[in-house]
């Protein structure tokens, strides 16, 4: 059976999503996209993705808050969350882990590193 992992990308910057979408689609992931937190929660609940790549600074609900809501949804217990954000301070990173993120990546990222990190997280958690 050909199992394709589902990934949900959340960012208010469509151009960044375009790039990530291309990279991950190439690796055989099934992609869905959301441009803000509320949309992300709806799509996550409906599709139960294996992995969510989450921006932090978004209008309305920020990424940390989105992650907290996601973590309260028991359907998503096996879903991994990666923060991908321009906020690189130590405190932000701590907040990321405190809010249920598995990994914290900082923008701008290196394409190859990004893809290999995603693979590693999908494999080992």
């Amino acid at each position: 059976m050909n199992f394709k992992p589902k990934v949900l990308l959340v960012d208010d910057e469509p151009n960044i999503l375009t790039a990530i979408e291309f990279l991950l689609e190439r690796e055989g992931f099934v992609i869905s996209k959301a441009y803000n937190g509320l949309e992300a929660l709806e799509i996550a609940d409906a599709t139960i993705p294996d992995l969510i790549v989450l921006d932090v600074m978004m209008p309305g609900m920020d990424g940390f808050e989105v992650a907290r809501h996601l973590r309260q949804n028991s359907k998503l217990d096996d879903t991994k969350i990666i923060f991908l954000t321009a906020k690189g301070a130590e405190q932000d990173r701590k907040n990321g882990y405190a809010n249920g993120g598995e990994y914290y990546l900082i923008k701008p990222f290196d394409n190859d590193f990004f893809v290999s990190t995603i693979h590693e997280i999908m494999a080992y958690g």
Partner: peptide, 10 residues
């Protein structure tokens, strides 16, 4: 960082 991210990746 935001535009740089798009530019770098693309």
């Amino acid at each position: 960082r935001t535009p740089v991210t798009s530019i770098k990746a693309l």
